[in-house]
Amino acid sequence: MKQRISLTFFFALAAVLAITSVSAEEGGGHPEIARQKWVFSGFTGQFDKAQLQRGFQVYKDVCSACHGLKHLAFRNLVQPGGPEFPVDAVKELAKTWPNQITDGPNDEGKMFERPPLLSDPIRGPYHNDQEARAAQNGALPPDLSLMARARNVERNPSWWIHPFLMLGDIAHAYQEGGADYIYGLMTGYSEPPADFKLTDGKFYNHVFPGHQISMPPPLSDGVVAYQDGTPSTVDNYAKDVVAFLSWSADPSLDTRKRIGWQVILYLIVTTGLLYLGKKRIWAGIKH
């Protein structure tokens, strides 16, 4: 009984601390990157095929002008759990992809350029970093295939709230920090505040560390023509391309969670059975 009272007290205290901390945090100075709702988030979320297809379209029409997806091959666009485009369409897409593959040497010892095959990576327009920097005024457009995992949203709660937030994130299976960051970045462009000194050729983005980014605002309403009737807004573009990049960074997400539930259910049942067995074995023995 005593134990239960102290437990109740503990949780009540934790709740009070949590509430006060959240309200204290809202007054904080640094830019908060809001958590978005993603269909693939949490412990049950799965990718939406149509959204991945739209996201790829945004990548193809906008991002691919500067950024590559080197860890992704054209064949991945066909595989289950992804955008699942028809094979023939992807073959056609590869054939007409503007960025060719350097192959060779051929019989004459010469390197040559050829259109990508299904097994080739989705290359960006530049052959190497130097070429990219030369074309981009010194800035390097990073490869995007792992971007959704290579970024995270840092949160700086008060120390006593830290453990509860951590446990909350683990229990909710929150893994979408990278997605939230990219969405924030896509929609985070604005005019700089009056007292902000912007370097020439840079753009103000309140999400980007240091707020000065070399990439011009990539999205504007109507820049990509969706085929499926989804409204052509920046918000939709950003959400869709983030979903696509999240898949590109973690193509096994659907399978992972599906197998995960089978494993968890199996282990719950097995733990239960083992516990009953143990109780039976120990039945005659006080311990």
Partner: peptide, 30 residues
Amino acid sequence: TSKDAVGICAFLLLYAWFVFFVPDYLGHAD
């Protein structure tokens, strides 16, 4: 052994949660 089996299986539950639902949580995005 029967008690160990319960402990191990319960621990595997925690392990599996991380492996299948938050594999990156303990790592660093960088």
